[in-house]
Design a protein around this nucleic acid. Structure first.
Lengths: 229, 229
DNA sequence: ATGCTTATTCTTGTATACGTGATCGCTGAT
DNA sequence: ATCAGCGATCACGTATACAAGAATAAGCAT
């Protein structure tokens, strides 16, 4: 999987920048520009972009400049649904093979989240909030499950950037602690419920209530401004 | 996602060849050779190989020629576990949004499977058996779910090639018809059970009973030959 | 001033060249 | 006869060149 380390550097940097919303959805990603920045040729930049494109973080259309992906609301719902499904499996595995030191690792992570949140570093806070789920998945001990979940969680950053109300910044540390507590009891049903509720909460923060902004029809918007503004 | 159509041709061909087990796990995939065959440069072959590598069908190690992936038994179990999880979600969605014409599509597909099986075309038969699940996933109406499932099902071909007993050739049409019947009743519980049993059967055919061949330790094998052959 | 057409520039698509690490066969020694 | 060391060849890693399709700006007509 690891390409030539130098292409990997570009990949990692871009990925992180996208996840932390430094590169917002729709941003153009010119090969030359990126290559110049990292001191590598377009060949390697291309490799990085293609990889990101397969992960759904970047959109590549033939003969067009790559952009940070702009998932539609429908895609967003699909992503959350798959995420729900995968996270459930993760939790199930964890309760089945729980070991006390896992609790320590998770607790330490949530503490980091809280620290970032307290010091007002929202970029790190929201990245760490996502990584909490990645850590869970890795502890669950199924590499493929972890890979898919990682992809899906990353894409949730895009969704949050697009549709989330501003300033929500996850604030999920309490919910994370709740999940950890449930896992420590090794009760599958309770743990799954805790995770489920947490995910619904995240989704609620990320997506408009229901089909509020289903599809932004220009005429619908203009209708609101055409009678008497 | 679609690269330059010409790279896509190589990608499609390789993918299909791997899935139909014309290219068995471990086969070397030289960039020059493939490029010469399709009349394209290594650049495009590389793109195709990288894509296949991200899907887990090809292994790329730095400075080494790419090979058809050789999943370990542990990976195989991980893949089946994720597959189980995803297929369950597919079935759940299908029972929720069932429409009669879906039954027709599925039935038609199973008929194709049966035809291929009857005429002794095992390559097509086993490809179609896998594609049945892809069709299910597409009908379920979640593109991401379908993509992940498609990846996972493809990798099951590798597993079958590696660990499956010879000549099993899926013979799964009856089980597929069972799943369709359950779906037509729109009973989620029954459908999930049907799918679950089918998957366990597939896994049983693909993987050795339990941890029979867990890890082929050379010393273990030699021990059997060292006392009195 | 607005809209349409055309020319220029920018950016990507693909092939190819060159350097370097791997692979494999050969020689020679034990 | 087997194995270690070594050189030749082979295949990949990466940069670059050239072609061609988009995007954009300029110019013209209405």
């Amino acid at each position: 999987m690891e390409t030539s380390s130098r292409s990997d550097i570009a990949y990692q940097a871009l990925r992180r920048a996208i996840i932390e919303q430094a590169l917002v959805p729709g941003t153009k990603l010119r090969e030359d520009e990126i290559g110049a920045h990292f001191g590598i040729s377009r060949t390697l930049v291309r490799a990085a972009l293609m990889r990101l494109s397969q992960e759904g973080l970047v959109e590549i259309k033939r003969k067009r400049t790559a952009t940070v992906a702009v998932p539609s609301l429908d895609e967003a719902r699909e992503i959350f649904e798959v995420r729900h499904c995968l996270e459930q499996q993760v939790v199930q595995r964890l309760t089945a093979h729980w070991r006390p030191e896992m609790g320590e690792v998770l607790e330490a992570h949530v503490n980091e989240e809280e620290a970032a949140s307290r010091r007002g570093d929202t970029a790190s806070a929201s990245r760490l909030a996502g990584e909490f789920h990645i850590v869970l998945a890795r502890l669950a001990g199924n590499a493929l499950l972890a890979r898919y979940l990682s992809e899906v969680v990353s894409r949730c950053s895009l969704i949050l950037a697009l549709y989330g109300r501003p300033h929500v910044a996850e604030c999920a540390t309490a919910e994370h602690r709740g999940v950890i507590a449930a896992l420590r009891e090794r009760d599958a049903a309770v743990s799954i419920r805790a995770m489920s509720q947490h995910l619904h909460a995240v989704e609620g923060r990320a997506l408009p209530e229901s089909r509020e902004a289903e599809e932004v029809r220009i005429s619908d918007i203009l209708a609101r401004y055409s009678t008497a503004g």
